[in-house]
Write a protein that binds this DNA or RNA. Structure first.
Lengths: 169, 169
DNA sequence: CCTAACCTTGAAGCTAACTTCAAGGTCAAG
DNA sequence: CTTGACCTTGAAGTTAGCTTCAAGGTTAGG
């Protein structure tokens, strides 16, 4: 399989696949006499695995250290450990999000609750003071960070026909 | 107030404050005859507001468009709109996180549920197949993205004494 | 008067995860 | 034998939000 075909089957761009190879996430594959890369069918699965892990919040660095060269020989302990820690990270982030959401809701309410006898300027001041008072200190969230994919899908648009020139612009 | 003092009071670094000015998030302030910036007391509040908004998931760009030059004159409608949309974004992210967490938990269980008569290689294959089958298609989360601060606190360490030289390395 | 801690600027560097570009080689069809 | 869709490489660009650096001016204390 040439890189273009792998790209189609995996939903990634060729440049991304080459990039993964460059950073050592994919091992270097065999080449045809003309220099073209040839991929085994398994490569589709590996790429699927990588994007799945990314969606779960793993960085490429983390994925690299976890991915074995042979898909049938995983470092069981390290993997479980990483999965567990990632869950903890996610939970920490969920807590933060819940707090942020609550904070924003409170803020909205606070803004709308303007006393009838108060003008906008004074209300602004009231709300601001409330809000800043609300934060006793930098909340000390000391845990690993989570990286999520942007919500705009990173995957190559699942070719609706044939790409002519990677689409204009 | 000089920039160093503002930095202390706000918990930000001077470079960060200058950066905010450069990108138009802070309006250019008055200068002393020697060229030093002088800040009004209010600047502390504005910076507090900015970091609070950041913690809530707003980008500096968003904050810039929302922040009025006069803190007592907000664009009420735009503000409420932005707050509401941000809450929606947070909720979308929470959904994703919940899915990711569930996915990871299922994966852990799946790995541990290896049938006694199956060797590791076969189990690996079973788990992989399950996992990749698990994703019917790229889940189409079409919403704005949320940027959260890294969990490692961006704030300047709340000066435990006197910084000599911004601390070594 | 010296020194250290401030302040100034513009430019460059950092991280992550890619993409884009430039410049060129390969290959199948017509 | 020409066209155009592929493939190759290395280098540079992108985004966000800063920091760091280099090179220099200012100021308060002793």
């Amino acid at each position: 399989m040439k890189i273009g075909e792998l790209a189609q089957q995996s939903g990634l761009t060729p440049s991304r696949i080459r990039f993964y190879e460059r950073i050592g996430l994919l091992k270097t594959v065999a080449r045809r006499p003309n220099g073209y890369r040839t991929y085994p069918q398994q490569a589709v699965m590996i790429l699927g695995l990588i994007t799945t892990a990314q969606r779960a919040g793993f960085t490429l660095d983390e994925i690299r250290t976890l991915l074995p060269s042979d898909l049938t020989h995983w470092d069981h302990a390290a993997l479980m450990d990483a999965l567990t820690r990632k869950i903890v990270d996610i939970e920490a982030l969920q807590v933060r999000l819940t707090q942020s959401r609550a904070h924003l809701l409170r803020l909205i309410e606070d803004i709308q609750e303007r006393p009838d006898d108060m003008d906008c300027a004074a209300n602004a001041h009231r709300v601001l003071t409330n809000m800043l008072a609300d934060h006793p200190e930098a909340l000390d969230v000391t845990s690993g960070d989570i990286r999520l994919l942007d919500t705009k899908d990173r995957r190559q648009s699942v070719s609706p026909g044939r790409r002519k020139k990677t689409a204009s612009r």
